[in-house]
C-alpha cells in the first residue's frame, strides 16, 4: 500500500512536470498569436520608432519567436520568469507575493464546497424522492447555472450593503484574525458555492447508484442500521467517482478565482493574470499560466493519491489510476 502510493505519486509528479512544460510552450506561442503588442500598449499611439525598437530589444521581443522561447525556458530553469513589460517588476517576486493569497482563497472555497456539496449530496440521496431532495435539486440547479461573479455580487449586496456584516471588497495581510478572514468569507462563498452545487449533484447520483449495489443489502442483512450502512459502507464507495471530479473542479476554482479576485479586489494571482492578459504583458501572462497550471496539476496529483487511498482495487502502475 505505502509502496503503491509512493510509486503512484512519483509517476504522477513526473507526468505533471511534463504537462507543465507543454502548457508553458502552448501558452507562449498562443500569446504571440493574439493581436496586440505590449510595447505599443505601453507607449500609446504617439511614439518614437527608435524608442519602440529600443524597448523591443530590451525585453528581447525583437528575436525570432523560437529563440524567445528558448531564452524563456533557459531562464525558467534558473528560477527567472523575466520582468513585467508594464511595471518592470520581477514576475517571480510578484507571483510569489500573490500565490499565497490565491491558494488561501481556493482552499477556503474548497472548505465551503466539499462539506456543503458532499453533505447536501448525502442528505438529498437519503431523502430521495421527498421534498428535501427536490428542494436540494432545485437549489443546486440554480447554483450550477449562476456564474461566480453573479453569486459574488448577490452576496455583496446582501451581506455588505444591506446587512453590513462583512466588508464588500479589500484585503488585509494574512493573520489569524477576523480582520483578515472577514475579507475572504464572501469571496470564498462566491467561489465555493457553485462548486458545492456540482459536487452535491454528483454525490447524490453516486450514492443512489451505490444504494442499488448488493453489498448494501448485505450490510442491512447483517444487522447494520440504515444510517450506519449509509455512513460506513455507502458514502466511502460513493466518494470514489466524486473525488475524480473534485480534481477537475479545482480547475474551475482557479478560473473562478480570476473573476472573484477582480470582483472583490483581492490582490491574488487571478487579478494579476487578468491585467497582464489585457496589457499583453507576455512575461507576466506566462508566469501566471505556469502558476495556474501548477495549482491544477498539484491538485490532481493529490486527488490521484486520494484515489489510491480510497479504493484498494487500484494498484501500482502509472496507468491504472488514470481517471
Amino acid at each position: 500500500m505505502r509502496n503503491a502510493l509512493f510509486l503512484t505519486a512519483l509517476s504522477r509528479i513526473a507526468t505533471a512536470v511534463a504537462t507543465l512544460l507543454v502548457v508553458a510552450a502552448v501558452v507562449f506561442f498562443l500569446m504571440r498569436l493574439i493581436p496586440g503588442d505590449p510595447v505599443l500598449n505601453w507607449l500609446g499611439s504617439n511614439y518614437d520608432k527608435a524608442d519602440y525598437d529600443r524597448l523591443k530589444a530590451f525585453y528581447g521581443l525583437d528575436l525570432p519567436v523560437g529563440q524567445q522561447f528558448f531564452v524563456w525556458v533557459q531562464r525558467l530553469f534558473q528560477g527567472d520568469l523575466g520582468s513585467s513589460v508594464l511595471t518592470n517588476l520581477s514576475v517571480v517576486e510578484e507571483l510569489l507575493r500573490r500565490i499565497p493569497v490565491t491558494v488561501e482563497l481556493i482552499v477556503l472555497a474548497l472548505l465551503v464546497a466539499l462539506p456543503v456539496g458532499i453533505g447536501a449530496g448525502i442528505w438529498a440521496a437519503w431523502r430521495y424522492g421527498r421534498p428535501t431532495d427536490h428542494a436540494l435539486l432545485t437549489a443546486t440547479l440554480l447554483g450550477i447555472s449562476l456564474p461566480e461573479f453573479f453569486v459574488g455580487a448577490l452576496l455583496m449586496l446582501a451581506f455588505s450593503l444591506e446587512w453590513r456584516l462583512l466588508p464588500a471588497t479589500g484585503f488585509s495581510r494574512f493573520a489569524w484574525s477576523w480582520e483578515h478572514f472577514s475579507h475572504l468569507v464572501l469571496p470564498a462563498l462566491a467561489l465555493g458555492l457553485p462548486r458545492a452545487a456540482v459536487i452535491c449533484r454528483l454525490m447524490r447520483g453516486s450514492l443512489l447508484e451505490v444504494f442499488g449495489r448488493p453489498f448494501i443489502r448485505a450490510s442491512l442483512a447483517k444487522g447494520l442500521s440504515r444510517k450506519a450502512t449509509l455512513f460506513v459502507h455507502a458514502v466511502r464507495n460513493a466518494l470514489i467517482p466524486v473525488v475524480t471530479v473534485i480534481g477537475l473542479q479545482i480547475g474551475y476554482l482557479v478560473a473562478g478565482a480570476v473573476v472573484v479576485e477582480k470582483l472583490f479586489v483581492i490582490p491574488g494571482v487571478g487579478a494579476y493574470g487578468l491585467n497582464a492578459v489585457f496589457a499583453r504583458d507576455y512575461p507576466s501572462v506566462q508566469g501566471f499560466i505556469l502558476v495556474v497550471a501548477t495549482i491544477f496539476l498539484v491538485a490532481n496529483v493529490i486527488v490521484d493519491l486520494l484515489y489510491v487511498w480510497l479504493d484498494p482495487r487500484i494498484r501500482i502502475g502509472p496507468r491504472t489510476a488514470a481517471a
Binding site: 449495489r213 448488493p214 453489498f215 450490510s219 459502507h233 464507495n237 480510497l310 479504493d311 484498494p312
Partner: peptide, 8 residues
C-alpha cells in the same frame, strides 16, 4: 463478490 464492501 458483489455482496462484500469493495473498499473495506
Amino acid at each position: 463478490g458483489a455482496c462484500l464492501d469493495p473498499v473495506m
